[in-house]
Design a protein around this nucleic acid. Structure first.
Lengths: 207, 207
DNA sequence: GTCTATAACTAGATAGAC
DNA sequence: GTCTATCTAGTTATAGAC
């Protein structure tokens, strides 16, 4: 995705919303082009196919989130000096940008958490490749930071801790608005973020 | 699902496998009936529709897992006496049956972890209702046990801890065979199970 | 670049014979 | 209960006019 014209970003916005609400298979390119007010042929013209459109939606959100994660980690490292940032700061650099993307929403993004969850369980090889490309270098970078903060842990331990943390984060994003009894909504997103960070930090330390 | 005849369970087995590998939308009822060696009309005859088939697959796995969870919790409570089981035992009762279903596999079940992940991110109302029905009473039961083991925590805290734990468990099951560099495969399922239990226990205690 | 029209196809579902 | 044949509706994708 280079620069997007108006038609392209309108398609992406509408498709993200509809896919999030109803799933990939229940939404046709007709649904998307109709709601976006563009021509039926526009998706194939601009993106190639429905699957390529899904990949484009995914990439549009994930790339900036992962850039923000790396930037947050870098600035935490700059602030902490030679001995490296502490565990909570590293986890926060990982967790907060994703939450900000999915919840903070100045313009959309809420829908994306469901869509991301679906991409994780989607066996489409193109999505799989995209995930690999976007997350492998990121994970390497965070693993390295964590090894410094938790020198008593092995690489394997750190790997699994990150997997568990990632899972907790994304399941929360995925089900934030579902399976939550009303009496438990009495807690802000920020408080939930803090809870997740301390949950993950304690879990990592226990390994 | 009452009792299943041979055709019905053959359909369920094949459908579970194919849906797990390729997703709901890429697999047609033709694919399933062909591979199962049954007639094209059999799915509609026995299950009603493709969506009902998905629900039946889901139910066939989830019901026994959740029964096993309740049984494990009950026996942990019986063993622990009046003061109730400790945190790790409760979490183990929750975690181990799911892992056993998805990994232990005497006859299938491996495929199910991907399928379950997809059901969680699937916005189909029938699946949503099924999840609600299967998990709401289960969660109530585990919440009660956890409140006894962690009396300093509020109901809200316990709720979020369980959400994080659930997420870590299911993300692990979902990506167990993906995004794992070969050098990190040097750890048994049992060891990973233990790691997850201690990760979650430490996280809960930190809340 | 954008649209209309349609090609080429596949899907889930079912009626009715066996 | 099981099968064949077929219906209807929906899909993605594209050729060609504007």
């Amino acid at each position: 995705m280079k620069s997007l014209n108006d038609t392209q970003s309108r398609i992406l916005d509408v498709a993200e919303e509809l896919f999030s609400e109803q799933g990939f298979d229940r939404i046709s390119i007709r649904d998307i082009t109709t709601k976006a007010g563009v021509n039926l042929a526009a998706i194939n013209y601009h993106f190639g196919s429905k699957e390529d459109l899904i990949a484009a939606i995914f990439e549009r959100r994930v790339v900036p989130v992962n850039e923000a994660r790396l930037a947050a980690l870098a600035s935490a490292e700059a602030a902490a000096g030679k001995k490296g940032p502490k565990l909570e700061a590293i986890l926060e650099a990982f967790i907060r940008p994703a939450i900000h993307c999915c919840v903070g929403k100045p313009e959309g993004g809420t829908a994306f958490s469901k869509l991301f969850g679906r991409c994780l369980s989607e066996p489409d090889p193109a999505i799989e490749a995209l995930l690999q490309k976007q997350f492998e270098p990121l994970m390497k970078r965070f693993d390295a930071a964590l090894m410094k903060a938790l020198p008593h842990l092995s690489r394997t331990d750190i790997f699994w801790c990150m997997k568990f943390t990632f899972g907790a984060l994304h399941h929360w994003l995925l089900t934030r608005d579902r399976f939550v009894p009303s009496w438990r909504k009495d807690i802000t997103v920020e408080a939930q973020t803090q809870k997740l960070i301390s949950f993950a930090a304690a879990g990592c330390r226990a390994a």
